[in-house]
Computed example of a mutant assay.
Amino acid sequence: MDTVVVALWLIFLVAAVFYVRRARHPDARPLAAYLIFILAFTASAFVAFVTVSMILVGLDRSDATAHPVGAALFLVLVFAPAFVIGRWQIRKPPRPSPEP
């Protein structure tokens, strides 16, 4: 299972390169936009995962993710907001460099 998760994450990282290249702000540097997207996506997905998991455990419904529909809903609740936040971050114009 661990190798599957790592393989899927690596596939996501490669796919994100092509997505960020298209979706970033025109003035943003490609590497900076990619790193911002990955960081924002990962951090917000982690927060959403923990939050949704705690809500399910608190409601004593943690077995809901054992069913395919429940698992799909869980993934949507975790990754959809993470994707929106990552996209929002890379679409913002870069800050101007401070002049000395």
Rank of each mutant, 00 (worst) to 15 (best):
6 V>A: 07
35 L>H: 12
45 A>Q: 04
98 P>A: 05
41 F>E: 03
46 F>Y: 14
73 L>P: 06
79 F>P: 03
100 P>W: 01
31 L>V: 12
3 T>N: 10
41 F>N: 04
83 F>N: 08
53 S>C: 03
38 I>N: 08
95 R>T: 12
78 V>P: 01
15 A>W: 15
64 A>M: 13
56 L>T: 03
60 D>Q: 09
45 A>I: 02
9 W>D: 12
45 A>H: 06
62 S>T: 07
75 L>T: 11
49 F>T: 09
26 P>E: 08
100 P>K: 00
84 V>R: 08
73 L>M: 10
40 A>N: 13
52 V>R: 06
1 M>Y: 12
28 A>Q: 11
95 R>P: 14
68 P>G: 06
47 V>W: 00
42 T>F: 00
24 R>H: 07
69 V>D: 13
7 A>N: 09
50 V>T: 13
69 V>Q: 11
27 D>M: 07
53 S>Y: 11
52 V>L: 10
79 F>M: 07
14 V>W: 15
23 A>Y: 00
87 R>G: 05
59 L>G: 07
65 T>D: 06
11 I>M: 09
62 S>I: 11
19 Y>L: 05
36 I>F: 02
34 Y>G: 02
33 A>C: 00
85 I>S: 07
49 F>D: 14
45 A>F: 04
23 A>V: 04
83 F>T: 13
22 R>Q: 13
16 A>K: 06
41 F>W: 15
32 A>C: 07
36 I>T: 12
5 V>I: 15
82 A>R: 01
69 V>H: 03
91 R>G: 07
38 I>T: 12
37 F>W: 00
27 D>K: 08
11 I>S: 07
77 L>D: 11
48 A>T: 03
60 D>V: 11
59 L>V: 07
44 S>T: 15
80 A>V: 11
59 L>E: 10
47 V>H: 02
84 V>K: 08
84 V>L: 15
71 A>L: 14
28 A>M: 14
24 R>V: 02
85 I>T: 04
51 T>C: 09
24 R>Q: 12
55 I>A: 15
51 T>Y: 01
38 I>Q: 10
69 V>I: 12
41 F>L: 02
9 W>C: 10
100 P>C: 02
60 D>S: 10
43 A>G: 04
85 I>E: 04
9 W>F: 13
23 A>T: 06
75 L>C: 11
90 I>P: 04
32 A>V: 08
94 P>S: 04
26 P>L: 13
26 P>R: 10
58 G>Q: 00
